Computed example of a mutant assay.
Amino acid sequence: MGIIFIIIILSCFFPQISFAVMPPDFIFNIGAQVAQFLSIITLFTSIAFGFVYQFFKSRFGLLERRKLLVVGITSVLLISGIVTYVYSMDKQQKEYERWLEESRIHSQPIQVNDKQEKEAVETGPIQEIEDSFYNLNKDVAISINDSDFMQVVMSNRVDYVILDAREDIEYTNGHYPDSLHIRFADLRNGQWQKLPKDKYIYVICWSGIRGKEVAEFLREKELAAIYLEGGALSWFDYGGKWIGNVKFADKYSESRYHIVFTTEEVRNMVAQGVLLIDTREPEKFKASHISNSINIPTMYTPSDEIEKTFGQLPSGSKFITVCDGYVNCFDAKVTGVELERRGHEFLGRYNKPWEYAK
């Protein structure tokens, strides 16, 4: 009993500070348990002294002489218990307030001055974007001639791919060995995302006109695209690597692929039921077009919409393709071939639609 008494006294007058602050709910639970423990100790101590008191009273008759001692010890125990309880609750409250203050401080946003922010930007993710392959090469010329392209393909470089953006029938007719073939319409429809972001993309078309348009489109997507200035035709004549033919006319030499009708001839054939297929760009068609003509710009139609677009014609239709420029008049030939493959009859082209309504 004396040891317990000494421990309680020491805990009151020589408290030790705890440096590891537990969460408040844990502290409250511990405090409640301590209070309960002290209450139980006090209860058992009172019972024990009750038995002692009865023993002395019945056996030794020392009631009067022990009374003061019992009252004194009991009072000391009660006072010690109360003081310990009050002190522990006060300590818990102070630790809880300190814990809240520390939580508030650490939860505040960190203030960064302009210098620190600049340093973070220079060393953070933005720096990685600035160092991307495209940003490091965006000032490279957008075109390349046959001679320089020959040096590229004859080197051991592995930092490039060759993209053939022509139509399917053109690629089937002839192409650069191991080139990647994606139609321009499909690139615009999202397939540009299949291209590597960490390599140069050398674009091949037939004459260089479409290649320039493709390269400009890809650069808008932050891809390091470069088009072959003279296209496949110039590269083939230069003696560059090539599989198959390059000239469309060599394979499609029949007269219908070269016929260009006059306005009067077209009017007469339309009166006989011949359809007009306008292969001009969708924007041009919307701006103006011949009445009852159908807009089928093959070069501007994604592959997953081709069949639906070609399906606008009744089976076995006779048709003339309408165009007004270098590229869309070539598209007029391509569209003629594609529709022939689907059972229609291609008669020829008409390249002066602005005269038709006069």
Results as ranks from 00 to 15, higher is better:
213 E>S: 02
223 L>A: 03
222 E>C: 10
197 K>A: 15
195 L>H: 05
207 S>Q: 03
194 K>A: 14
214 V>T: 13
215 A>Q: 01
189 N>Q: 11
221 K>A: 10
199 K>M: 04
216 E>T: 04
215 A>E: 06
203 V>A: 14
201 I>F: 12
219 R>D: 08
223 L>N: 08
208 G>V: 08
219 R>V: 11
199 K>P: 04
189 N>L: 10
202 Y>K: 07
189 N>W: 13
190 G>L: 12
224 A>L: 07
219 R>A: 08
218 L>F: 11
188 R>H: 11
193 Q>S: 11
207 S>E: 06
202 Y>L: 14
218 L>C: 09
200 Y>C: 11
224 A>Q: 05
203 V>E: 11
211 G>N: 02
188 R>N: 07
191 Q>D: 12
207 S>Y: 05
189 N>R: 03
222 E>F: 10
201 I>A: 06
191 Q>N: 11
205 C>M: 04
206 W>L: 11
217 F>H: 02
221 K>C: 04
224 A>E: 05
215 A>M: 01
197 K>D: 15
200 Y>Q: 07
217 F>K: 01
198 D>Q: 09
223 L>G: 07
206 W>T: 13
205 C>P: 01
187 L>S: 06
223 L>Q: 00
202 Y>Q: 13
194 K>W: 10
192 W>A: 13
209 I>W: 02
222 E>L: 10
187 L>V: 09
188 R>V: 12
189 N>S: 15
199 K>G: 13
201 I>P: 10
189 N>I: 04
189 N>T: 01
218 L>P: 04
206 W>I: 05
213 E>M: 01
204 I>V: 14
215 A>P: 05
205 C>I: 07
195 L>G: 08
206 W>F: 12
213 E>D: 02
208 G>H: 02
199 K>S: 08
190 G>Q: 07
213 E>P: 00
189 N>C: 10
202 Y>N: 14
198 D>F: 13
193 Q>G: 09
215 A>T: 03
202 Y>W: 15
216 E>L: 03
190 G>I: 13
207 S>P: 00
210 R>N: 09
207 S>A: 06
200 Y>M: 14
190 G>D: 09
220 E>H: 01
222 E>A: 13
209 I>D: 03
221 K>R: 02
187 L>M: 06
222 E>M: 11
216 E>P: 00
192 W>R: 00
